[in-house]
Nucleic acid binder design. Structure first.
Length: 881
DNA sequence: GATCCGACATATA
DNA sequence: TATATGTCGGATC
């Protein structure tokens, strides 16, 4: 049961309040076993015989009270209860008091406010109030410690061969296992570090040898061991292939030996295998240290993937089964579900150190436990309950050798943790040692491997592909990554590297009836030019997007978080009627989700060289490619013109997005060929020209090299004198209107904005209209969530009808109204004028009138909503293309 | 020659 | 450190 459902349940209790059933309804709302609650109600499970009191072992002590001193009553109860009841509740049905006996948290609220405090009782639903489960400083500390240890050992062993590095990776993961084992009852407490400390020399000289024999012991059955000192023989057989290969063990020194002993002092049981593995990923490459853990996926984000991908559906089946009034039916359905979840395969083709696999494993084990609890309630049987969810149905591909070692290790550690949880509940469990098979984690390049070989599937297999593959924009990709993309697509492309995973994932799903996929991805594959490039390769063979999380900012608890905005996309070939869009923690059921993650019936808008509407040409501003050399701040310019007043004529104002929006003064050199010689006589300018010349000459690009000989000029010049319409290339998404402007005089627009030279005035009105804004947001690119204008994608594709001169005049009048309103605030920048909270009323009204005039051109009936505007635009777009 | 993008970049409070 | 909001020129077509 998820939290939203629980909250809904509680709201229902309050809305249809019933004194008699309140407490039982409350327990039901959290998904506690129905059969148990029924028996509690009948009385045979109630440990209290006092009327108005309900006492349920480990769960609840409830008391109805008419007295006015509820506080006194609850304190009294707290001091007397003896069946480990988690919550005490006392109420007079006006006020509700509650105590969480485990955390000592208290609740004191009017009863009708219960829905907003529903989280207080979440432990009933198996959700502990761990405030920052994913913000564990212990993980970071441990990772840093391991990184230091790695450095020390590396320094003492200057061997860079791949074999040695691999051996070191394996050694570190074994060490991690030992640390963890002695803190979590796999070994005895401190058994490993004590043994090491007592039986090796302080200078580290014999430590390598000791590890060699120690690992051999862990890999040998107790019966097969002989002549071992008692302290070594006391270690259990571990197996699981963790210790079965021989590698060169590094040399140790006093320092590295001490570092290992110090490592044992950490509280390893506080560490989450879900996260800590990711931290260690960056241990190896010193160049990655700064970005330690930047890219690991936090538990909440993993949940955003696995819940809609499969977990919610499994819980639906679970809830349906326990809702039967017929125990035999419930029993049957639950057994079926048990079987189903034991057969599920989970596959992460970019698994890193296995976070997704670990969380998925944990969630399946938890569901399995809940099913066992329900079955127990029904049967009171003593069938042997042992988990049937095995690590060998978890698959992964990881390119990094160390991460892949850690992934296998972390899966074992998680299995152990779940076994401990299981034992607490059922008194027995599968033994942790000797370790069984771990997950099927393959080390390799996922873009080159055959996924069907890594995770084979029969027609009956239910497979869920998930993960957070690497993102890399086209100009950041390495040569190898480019050839990976090329290999998959058969041609060069401007797609992000993650496209490999979507395309291969789609191929892997094929037409398989029981396979779905969901990845966390950079949002740029759902915007701008990439949409039309990527999605035809993905949404083939009846595949659809069946859920999507719209753009949200990437976060985790790493020190320096990756700067990216992400989406989550689920794809399947199953036919699913109602798709779900998640946005700002709200979900919306829809019929269709397009690759922009909205609901219009549009697949992808392609870049166009020419406008489809009767518009003049829009061009990118003038591109300096000057490495900063040809542009000057007012101070820099003044320094020169003060000394050489005749140089004033060489400078012109230059405007990009920022200069226009924030009214920033900036100057550039803009000269005729004939003036170049006199330019060179000014020392400050000559210096700049030399700089530009050098930079251009050193560029990899031939076209830049050519212009090294003309360092006084911008490389690409498109300027025309007269009036120009400026459209900023990037602008905040918070603004209701795109701030555009008319520039007069010789102002140079640079490549950070677009220009229409000597435009018809009504174009100003059309491009600043709400309906055009809708279009940009729908089909344009973006920088994270900022609006990014582009001529080919936004302007040339914008459908606008041919209009009469009268209409043109109406719009032109509106434009003048907007300009007048702006002029009333000469001291304000565009950023201030278009701040959605502070926009002057007059300006807003002028825009409203402009919108009306523009929208009149499409149809006489006014549009009711943005959705309606977009529908209309898409229809028109299809007609016009 | 022209342009769209960034597991971003940078200023500001 | 968190928040707000747009640089610059590389790589590709």
């Amino acid at each position: 049961m998820n939290q939203a459902r629980i909250q809904e349940n509680i709201q229902n209790i309050i809305n249809n309040f019933n004194k008699e059933s309140f407490i039982f309804d409350l327990l039901l709302a959290y998904g506690l076993p129905k059969a148990g609650i029924t028996r509690l109600r009948k009385g045979d499970r109630n440990l209290s015989s006092v009327p108005g009191e309900i006492s349920w072992k480990k769960k609840l002590f409830f008391k109805e009270a008419a007295d006015n001193d509820l506080h006194l009553i609850i304190t009294n109860i707290k001091s007397k209860i003896k069946h480990d009841q988690r919550f005490i509740i006392v109420t007079d049905y006006q006020t509700l008091l509650a105590i969480d006996t485990k955390t000592d948290d208290k609740l004191d609220i009017p009863l009708n406010e219960l829905p907003t405090h529903f989280d207080f009782f979440l432990p009933w639903a198996g959700m502990e109030k761990v405030t920052h489960k994913n913000d564990n400083p212990a993980d970071v500390k441990a990772a840093e410690k391991m990184a230091r240890l790695f450095d020390i050992i590396k320094k003492d062993n200057p061997d860079d061969s791949p074999e040695f590095i691999h051996g070191l990776n394996v050694f570190l993961s074994r060490l991690l296992f030992c640390f963890f084992a002695e803190d979590t009852n796999i070994f005895r407490e401190n058994q490993f570090v004590n043994a090491l400390d007592a039986h090796t020399n302080a200078d580290g000289s014999d430590l390598g040898q000791w590890f060699e024999s120690f690992f051999l012991v862990l890999d040998t059955h107790k019966e097969k061991r002989s002549d071992l000192p008692e302290y070594l023989n006391a270690f259990h057989y571990v197996n699981g292939n963790l210790f079965n290969k021989r590698f060169t063990i590094p040399q140790f020194t006093r320092r590295s030996r001490q570092a290992i002993i110090d490592g044992g002092q950490l509280q390893w049981k506080d560490i989450n295998p879900d996260i800590f593995g990711s931290m260690f990923q960056a241990v190896i490459g010193a160049d990655q240290r700064g970005s330690l853990g930047q890219h690991y996926t936090s538990v909440p984000n993993i949940m955003k993937v696995i819940e809609p991908l499969f977990l919610n559906e499994l819980y639906e089946e679970f809830n349906k089964a326990i809702a039967h009034n017929n125990p035999a039916k419930t029993n049957h359905d639950l057994s079926h579900l048990l079987h189903r979840i034991s057969k599920i395969k989970i596959f992460d083709p970019a698994c890193g150190s296995g976070n997704f696999l670990i969380i998925a494993y944990k969630e399946l084990r938890r569901l399995e436990m809940k099913i066992f609890i329900e079955l127990e309630e029904i049967e009171k049987s003593h069938i042997t309950k042992l988990s049937n969810i095995h690590l060998n149905r978890f698959y992964g591909i990881e390119i990094d050798d160390f991460a892949h070692e850690v992934a296998m290790l972390a899966l074992w550690l998680t299995e152990h943790q779940m076994n401990v949880e299981f034992k607490k509940q059922f008194g027995q469990t599968n033994p942790t040692l000797p370790l069984k098979d771990s997950g099927n984690i393959v080390q390799g390049n996922a873009t080159r491997l055959n996924w069907d070989e890594v995770c084979p599937k029969s027609q009956e297999d239910e497979v869920f592909v998930l993960g957070n593959p690497p993102y890399r924009g086209f100009s950041q990709q390495s040569t190898d990554q480019k050839s990976d993309l090329n290999y998959i697509l058969g041609s060069t492309t401007k797609l992000d590297y993650i496209a490999c995973w979507f395309i291969l994932g789609s191929k892997y799903i094929g037409a398989h009836p029981k396979t779905s996929l969901a990845f966390v991805s950079t949002n740029s594959i759902t915007q701008g030019e990439q949409v039309a490039l990527l999605w035809p390769f993905v949404l083939n063979e009846n595949k659809t997007i069946f859920f999507a999380h719209k753009s949200f900012k990437w976060t985790n608890s790493a020190k320096s978080k990756a700067g990216v905005t992400v989406v989550i996309i689920g794809i399947t070939s199953k036919s699913i009627n109602s798709k779900i869009i998640f946005e700002n923690s709200h979900e919306k059921k829809v019929d269709f989700i397009n690759p922009y993650l909205s609901t219009s019936k549009i697949i992808g808008v392609q870049k166009r060289k020419e406008p489809i509407s009767p518009f003049p040409k829009m061009v990118l501003g003038n591109m300096p490619n000057d490495f900063g050399g040809l542009q000057f701040s007012p101070q820099e310019k003044q320094e020169i013109t003060n000394n050489f007043p005749e140089t004033n004529r060489f400078f012109k104002r230059v405007v990009g997005s920022q200069e226009f929006i924030k009214d920033i003064e900036r100057w550039c050199l803009w000269v005729k060929e004939s003036d170049v010689d006199s330019l060179k006589t000014i020392p400050q300018i000559a210096k700049r020209l030399l700089f530009v010349k050098d930079q251009r000459a050193n560029s990899k690009k031939k076209s830049y090299n050519i212009y090294a000989e003309k360092p006084h000029r911008f490389i690409e010049i498109r300027h025309q004198s007269g009036t120009s319409l400026i459209i900023p290339g990037t602008s905040s998404e918070k603004r209701e209107y795109l701030p555009i402007g008319l520039l007069t005089g010789e102002i140079i627009i640079n490549n950070l904005a677009f220009a229409i030279y000597n435009p018809p005035i009504e174009l100003f009105g059309i491009l600043s209209s709400r309906i055009h804004n809708n279009w940009l947001r729908a089909v344009g690119g973006s920088l994270e969530t900022r609006i990014r204008y582009s001529s080919l994608l936004c302007y040339n594709t914008f459908p606008f009808p041919q209009i009469s001169d009268r209409r043109k005049q109406e719009i032109t009048q509106g434009v003048f109204r907007i300009l007048e309103e702006r002029e009333k605030h000469p001291d304000k920048t565009m950023a201030q004028l278009y701040d959605p909270d502070k926009m002057p009323d007059g300006l807003r009204e002028a825009h409203r009138l402009n919108d009306l005039a523009v929208e009149q051109c499409y149809r006489s009936r006014p549009f009711q909503s943005d959705e309606e505007r977009l529908e209309h635009l898409f229809k028109l777009y299809e007609q016009m293309t």
